[in-house]
């Protein structure tokens, strides 16, 4: 089967080794700073609301992508969101087989644009669009202010 043949050891060919090394420190930004503080300190998921056109954004934006005005108002997300799309991952980034398949989903919230792409804490057969889910957070005191403070979403 030609179409599934793979080269698994490119280094067996003649080559010159190289490495594009790079190291980064990012800023979470003005909106991101507040979002992550709320998540870490209060266990709350927050979005922003455009006072001009009313669009609500999650993750929060400091500007409205719709009407391009600066956004100042903060609003808390509803407790429950809905899985808009799901996928069941069987193969890892490096091409190896995962020991157990993982469920990932796009979680949306009523009244908000955007959402989160995150882990679904359910067995693969339950990971389907339409599933109502809530964020499962790491315990207070162990959260660092990162997207991984959310362990995933579960019914």
């Amino acid at each position: 089967m030609t179409f599934t043949e793979r080269t698994t050891d490119a280094r067996s060919f003649r080559h010159w080794p190289g490495n594009v090394e790079a190291d980064y420190i990012y800023t979470s930004g003005i909106a991101g700073e507040r979002f992550f503080r709320e998540l870490r300190d209060h266990g709350r998921l927050m979005g922003t609301r455009c006072s001009e056109c009313g669009t609500q954004w999650v993750p929060p934006k400091l500007f409205c992508e719709e009407c391009f005005k600066e956004v100042h108002d903060w609003v808390e997300l509803p407790r429950e969101g809905t899985v808009g799309a799901a996928c069941i991952v069987g193969v890892a980034l490096d091409g190896s087989r995962l020991s157990a398949p993982e469920a990932w989903g796009l979680v949306r919230f009523a009244g908000f644009r955007g959402g989160f792409v995150h882990r679904l804490l359910v067995t693969p057969d339950r990971a389907r669009a339409g599933l109502r889910v809530r964020a499962v957070l790491k315990p207070e005191g162990t959260r660092t202010g990162a997207i991984t403070d959310i362990r995933g979403f579960s019914p």
Binding site: Y26, T27, S28, G29, I30, A31, G32, E33, K61, L62, F63, C67, F68, K69, E70
Partner: peptide, 25 residues
């Protein structure tokens, strides 16, 4: 080093230019 993300910086400059041009997006 600025705290703003690149997106936030882009917005700030763009909004300023639009305001000066008396235009909206």
């Amino acid at each position: 080093r600025l705290q703003e993300t690149g997106k936030e910086l882009s917005f700030e400059a763009t909004r300023m230019a639009l305001d000066q041009a008396k235009m909206e997006i």
